[in-house]
Design a protein around this nucleic acid. Structure first.
Length: 604
DNA sequence: GCCGTTTTCGGCCCGACTGTTTTCAGTCG
């Protein structure tokens, strides 16, 4: 939504990053990239507020975006000094210096200095949709507005009428109230079904020839700020009018001939953009973004003597491409780039050099490698889980009930044996469609020991190990803990590596490059977890994982039959990490998977 | 503040919507 996107893209106030208190001497690598990005975003906001050059704030924002998508830890690069940082596109002498200052002192001096000059809560005032730097400054200088509360007071009194018209005051008041409902970005797993439901309603509006859910959802971004729709129509105004009247829409922010912005009742923002049918491909490109990707494309157009907008590619006023995305990219001398890669994070260079990855697709997934049943904390029986996996066309389903929950009231090994017999019986009765693997998930204790009886570890067909408590250890300790778990001969897969949970806790800090390299050397796998509130590891770390060359598994962590649908999310995260099918165990047949397991077992 | 096989200075993506102290600037995607 405007509010959340604004906070995310401009000030970064609401990003899930560790608080400053949680960043002592050793920061998490990828997370400190994000922390510095947030500082730069705030610096950009402050720069706008004091009225410094808008090109400066743009440069700060650009650098912040680059840092967010950078998979190499900034500390590692900083070891090469300022010169190494300046080799990153969009980072020059001044920003390199700021990054180094942050790494050494935990603060950017320029940001600290500006914070002294501006009202305390001005960033949250500027986060209200429709209030930018100039308005915020006027509100402060003439009415003493310094935070959200004083903004609300000013809007409700007549004092604000000297600055803002009645319509604008009323609108801002509604948006300030909406802010309470829209504190965070929505995890993709929640946004996707809602977005699709609304898409169906839009597709049924009269005059709609084609409709698409674009934006960060189409790019499979782990969390989304708003839902972006594109509609192809010859009757734009009628479609817009019908759209804002849909029962889903709670509040209309703006409405014009070609675009509408509105809010759902829970504060989620919805944008709808129309294009003439012949501009469908150009519109798709526009609505999908990312912003950084679009800007690179437009710069590229200029370099080729062309112009790119949401209606097509133009040469001296004549449209040379517009109807498909493929044609748009081709007109710019590029192959079609898959949406999950569109972040200006190396996809242009890869496209030019002909090394765009052939991303893994959902249809290539032949089985599920993390699921739970009523034998531990799942809601459905083994048979129900198996039936659903069969309906999804899976060849296999690894039932990874939590080892420490088996036989909670008695002997765990007895329960494990009982479960094994039920699995065998089901495999016979279901004719191996799907084939159930007698697997377990074990907790990794604080010292790296997998928590399960030895006999269980030895006889389970597949062992997942994951951190479930004692989160937030110092990075080196967490690194040792995960390395030790990986080195245990029984462990096959490191599950949900960083432990992050949306709204609950940030990703754990560790030396991921070292951990993934060890996994690779040991021939073990690391999981990309698609459970909607996990989506673990986050994209930059997932991309490190792919680059490490280690084996990868996709798991939904399903605790109920409906959770098995989350494989789409795991695949999306893998795609954003540039994953191809080759190193993904789930793309292997049942026999190939069993061979991988037995090869590993014989090496013990 | 960044960047450059046309440039170390002078550019910096493109378009839509809102409201009016402002017929453009401010704001946003």
């Amino acid at each position: 939504m405007i509010l959340r996107r604004f906070l995310h893209e401009k000030s970064g106030i609401l990003r899930e990053v560790p608080s400053k208190d949680a960043l002592p001497d050793g920061y998490n690598q990828a997370m400190s990239n994000e922390a510095i990005a947030q500082q730069l975003l705030e610096l950009a906001e402050l720069t706008d507020y004091v009225g410094d050059s808008p090109f400066k704030s743009r440069a700060y924002r650009q650098a912040a975006r680059t840092l967010e998508t950078l998979q190499t830890p900034i500390e590692t690069l900083a070891e090469g000094g300022a010169a190494a940082l300046e080799a990153i596109p969009g980072i020059g002498e001044a920003i390199a210096e700021k990054i180094l200052a942050y790494l050494h002192t935990g603060a950017i001096p320029k940001r600290e200095q500006l914070l002294q000059q501006v009202p305390r809560g001005i960033l949250e005032v500027m986060a209200v949709p429709g209030i930018g730097a100039k308005t915020a400054r006027q509100l402060h200088e003439r009415l003493g507005v310094s935070d959200l509360q004083s903004l609300r007071n000013a809007l409700m009194s007549s004092a604000a009428s000297s600055i803002l018209g009645a319509q604008k005051r009323e609108r801002l008041l509604r948006l300030v109230e909406l802010k309470h409902k829209s504190q965070r970005r929505t995890p993709l797993g929640f946004a996707l079904p809602r977005g699709r439901e609304l898409l169906q309603a839009i597709q049924q509006l009269e005059g709609v020839e084609n409709a698409l859910l674009g934006g960060s959802v189409r790019r499979m971004h782990e969390d989304v700020g708003d839902l972006d729709y594109l509609v192809a129509t010859a009757q734009s105004e009628q479609v817009i009018e019908a759209f804002v009247r849909l029962p889903h829409i709670a509040e209309v922010y703006s409405q014009g001939a070609n675009r509408a912005q509105a809010f759902l009742s829970d504060g989620l923002q919805v944008d709808l953009k129309t294009v003439p049918p012949q501009s469908w491909g150009a519109g798709m490109l526009y609505i999908t973004g990312s912003k950084a990707h679009s800007i690179r494309l437009r710069q590229r157009a200029i370099e080729h003597g062309l112009k790119l907008n949401e209606y097509g590619v133009w040469r001296s006023g004549e449209c040379i491409a517009s109807d498909t995305e493929e044609a748009m990219y081709a007109a710019l001398g590029l192959p079609w780039i898959p949406p999950p890669l569109r972040e200006d994070a190396g996809e242009f260079e890869a496209a030019e050099e002909g090394r765009l990855p052939h991303l893994v697709q959902l249809a290539q997934i032949r089985g599920e490698l993390q699921s739970h049943s009523t034998w531990s904390d799942g809601f459905n029986t083994l048979e129900e889980m198996a039936q659903t996996a069969a309906a999804l066309g899976y060849e296999y389903l690894a039932v990874t009930d939590h080892a420490h929950m088996l036989g909670a009231n008695g002997d765990p090994m007895t329960a494990f044996e009982q479960r094994r017999r039920e699995i065998e019986e089901l495999n016979e009765r279901l004719n191996g469609r799907p084939y159930l693997l007698n697997a377990i998930e074990v907790n990794i204790l604080a010292d790296g020991t997998p928590l399960a009886p030895d006999a269980m570890l030895r006889t389970a067909q597949l062992v997942l190990a994951g951190v479930h408590d004692d989160h937030g250890q110092p990075p080196e300790q967490m690194t040792q803990r995960l390395l030790r778990a990986l080195e245990h001969p029984a462990v096959d897969i490191l599950a949900h590596p960083t432990g992050r949970r949306y709204g609950k806790r940030p990703a754990n800090d560790a030396d991921w490059a070292r951990i993934f390299e060890r996994a690779r050397a040991l021939g073990k796998a690391v999981e990309i977890n698609g459970y909607p509130t996990r989506m673990d590891p986050p994209t930059p770390i997932a991309r490190m994982l792919v680059e490490s060359g280690a084996w990868i598994t996709l798991g939904t962590d399903a605790h109920a039959v409906r959770d098995l649908q989350a494989m789409e999310l795991a695949v999306g995260l893998a795609q954003r990490a540039w994953a191809t099918p080759e190193r993904l165990l789930n793309t292997r047949s049942r026999d190939a998977l069993l061979r991988w397991l037995s090869d590993r077992r014989s090496e013990r």
